[in-house]
Amino acid sequence: MTGELLVFFALLMGGTAAALYAVYGGPAAVAVVVGGICWALFSWFLSTRVVAAVTGATPVTKEEQPDLYRIVENMSIAAGLPATPEVRIVDDPAPNAFAAGRGPKQAFVCVTSGLLQTMDHRELEGVISHEIAHVQHRDVRLMTLVAVLVGVVAMISDFALRMIFWGGMGNRRGGNQNNPILLAIAFLGLLLAPIAAIGIQLAVSRRREYQADAGGAEISGDPEGLALALRKLEQDPREIRHMNRSTAHLYIEGPLRKATDARGLLSGLFDTHPPLEDRIARLEQMGGFKLPQ
């Protein structure tokens, strides 16, 4: 999975660089690509610190939240994690949850206070099992990696387009001066590359959500509990505060779903999460049960 993604993004970046080369010549292309790689490394090493700060999660102890804490412990045991992740709470009335941290050893699981009020024990177990499955699958690291790569592709193409506008079309040494068709293709490629990158990012995110649902159901041994929790999330109209695109893929329910209510044909392409209906349907199939409508 990670390998394929790296190859894909290498191709995308190579393509952007080739387009840049066609328009502007060798040295510029090399400079932009090197700059992009440096930026990727920089944001990769900085990324892990950002999440906790952005979401405003505070750690809780076992004494404060014995029930929640025990569920996290139990789900970690059932998933065979090397350690129980830290438990954190965000004070927010909207029910939601997410997992973060680079690997299974430094992970933390975070729920909103709204989730604790909304869910009963069984449903909470379902939600936590989904998050623990994310930790087990190392999704947080994967999605951070993908986000960084998307950023780099966007940066390179943005930079190249600016150079074309400011520097004039291919009138420098080494550039291809006489081929308008090639220039047009390069231009189009530079425009489309970031969109393709984001499309891939979101497709990966949606796929990982299905896998975390299936993994979670296996961990808790109770697909119906998770399905019930998803149904409750579906029916709850509240939306979490302090939300932005960069952390959206971490949550159990796409936190931006309700903001974009108008669902066009293409809107599904740009969701971080599959529709809750589909996720519930897959769990029903897996567990051989049917939730009442």
Partner: peptide, 17 residues
């Protein structure tokens, strides 16, 4: 009760591996 739950959890993991 908690320990019984944890035995059940550990059992699920063990049986699956």
């Amino acid at each position: 009760t908690d320990t019984e739950d944890k035995i059940a959890a550990a059992r699920r993991y063990y049986n699956s591996v």
